[in-house]
């Protein structure tokens, strides 16, 4: 029994996921440093001041377009991609999985629905490519990224959008719209980090998104015929308990703060009076939004940690192969 669960994604997918994560984190850091500049003044400075932060955001935005168009093309031109498109469509199973998750959390169900299960354990075949949450993530990403890229390109040139939409204030409305669109993704990514970072079987990071399926072992035991996932055989990490509570609290504070901040730090309609933000009245919001950014930063670190683990595992496999060859030649080996 191992906490390394069944591989589901190809190497292209895992590399794409890591690059997309890196790019999206850069977009979040630069974009919300601009939008919440009252609360994240240090991030604006860290990213090169008011001009630097915009440059970072634009370069990362172009990177996002490259990545997204690459992925869409791959989905359309490859048979595997077209097949996968069908598996992303939500079905009745997914609704049932969500309902069963509520029951499971409240103690009215003994197991999570296969469409909700993150740790498949013995039952590799029963678990779909994506859980119902995973499907939701893909759809939200698809819709959000499309709208964000269109609105982002529109506001690239302020004078351009003024000529398109007649007035300066309407151009500001599009900037505000672009920022508020990203709030859904910002909150969703915080949850995504929580979901795949604090699962007790995978803590501190679920390797499924980093290890391609061709090198992930597809078995957990000789006897594959089990009634349970076998999670009882895994030992809980000693730090899991406080880690899940602390990180869960941070995620909740982060989500609530960016949500409240997006409503109160509104840039449209443009107020008649000059409003000076920040100060002690906004202290809680400032702390909360910074906690949210810290959650994203932890996500970035976990994404890199997942790749470090992948490298270590690949090297270990190579060593094992070498040891096996040596064993054939008559030498003894630990494994």
């Amino acid at each position: 029994m191992t906490s390394l669960d069944h591989g589901k994604f190809t190497r292209v997918t895992t590399v794409f996921h890591s690059l997309l994560a890196l790019d999206v984190f850069l977009l979040f850091f630069s974009g919300y440093a601009i939008m919440f500049n009252d609360e994240l003044w240090w991030l604006v400075e860290a990213l090169g001041g008011s001009m630097g932060v915009i440059a970072v955001h634009r370069v990362a935005g172009l990177g996002l377009i490259t990545l997204t168009v690459f992925w869409m093309t791959l989905l359309i031109i490859t048979p595997g991609g077209r097949d996968n498109f069908g598996t992303v469509l939500p079905g009745r199973d997914d609704v049932e999985a969500a309902i069963q998750d509520v029951k499971f959390a409240l103690g009215y169900a003994d197991e999570r629905h296969p469409n909700a299960r993150q740790f498949a354990g013995y039952k590799a075949d029963e678990v779909p490519l994506l859980s119902y949450v995973g499907k939701g993530v893909v759809w939200i990403f698809a819709v959000e990224l499309t709208l964000l890229m269109i609105s982002g390109l529109l506001i690239w040139s302020k004078t351009g959008i003024i000529s398109l939409f007649t007035t300066k204030a309407s151009a500001m409305a599009f900037v505000a719209f672009h920022g508020f669109l990203g709030i859904v993704m910002l909150m969703g990514v915080m949850f995504h980090i929580f979901e795949h970072g604090t699962h007790p079987a995978f803590y501190p990071v679920e390797m499924k998104a980093f290890l391609p399926k061709d090198i992930t072992p597809e078995y957990h035991a000789e006897d594959e015929d089990h009634d349970t996932t076998g999670i009882e055989d895994l030992e809980l990490s000693p730090t899991w308990n406080w880690a899940v509570n602390l990180f869960g609290l941070m995620v909740v504070i982060g989500i609530v703060s960016v949500l409240v901040g997006s409503i109160f730090d509104e840039t449209y309609p443009i107020p008649r009076e000059l409003t000076v933000g920040g100060g002690p009245t906004n202290l809680l919001l400032t702390i909360g939004i910074n906690v949210g950014i810290l959650v994203l930063f932890i996500g970035l670190v976990l994404s890199m940690y997942g790749n470090v683990m992948r490298r270590r595992y690949e090297r270990q496999l190579a060593e094992e192969r070498r040891a096996t060859t040596a064993a054939d030649g008559g030498e003894t080996s630990d494994d």
Binding site: A105, L106, T198, E235, L236, V244, V251, V252
Partner: peptide, 18 residues
């Protein structure tokens, strides 16, 4: 978030404690 938090706690309770 709360749903998964609760579900993870239940799953963790089934695992072997440290």
């Amino acid at each position: 978030v709360f749903l998964h938090w609760a579900a993870f706690r239940r799953l963790a309770a089934r695992m072997r404690q440290p």
